[in-house]
Amino acid sequence: MTIPRPRAIVIGASAGGFLALRTLFPVFPEGFPVPILVVQHQPAQGSGPRGCSLLALHCRLPVREAMDKEPVQSGHILFAPPGYHLLVEPDFTLALSIDAAVHHSRPAIDVLFETASDVYQTGLIGVLLTGASRDGTAGLQKIRQRGGKTLVQDPQDAEAPFMPRCAIAHGAADQVLPLNAIARTLKQLGNFQHE
């Protein structure tokens, strides 16, 4: 299946996610023409360097935590900060919230996926990776309902299979792929023209 170049890519990961993202991020070339937004579940008050600053070492694109009200930018990988939900606004800026946790998580994958699907509609790719949570399933369903495409990591290939399995069981996956195939697919997305 070829997919036209999307207007944004959203990625959700939980247990085992940092390792998976470390595999995924190096495939993006400099100047990748699509914005990438990420929710990785993590404790709110970590000590030591933040996970996303470690991932930046493995990536040619700028990787950092999103600030409230900043514009979405192509070729940047922005993470939901620990302790905040990350949302996309209709004017293509980012918003944060400290509303209640969803599926025991803040940030929650569903919150990013659902708000991004409202804004990008058919132009959104949702990617759900390894995890031991139910988070992400409702978000992927919303993305499909709005005409976007969803990729889910093959549970057999995932460090924690529960989260991708949950999404697949609820019919939320357009494609189920191992991580390296997801990486290849996302890299190719940059080559296609906008719809």
């Binding site: 949302l87 996309v88 606004e89 209709p90 919230s97 509303d99 919150v111």
Partner: peptide, 9 residues
């Protein structure tokens, strides 16, 4: 108010 969080609530 910011649109997306308000709409979710």
């Amino acid at each position: 108010y910011a649109h997306s969080s308000l709409k979710r609530r």
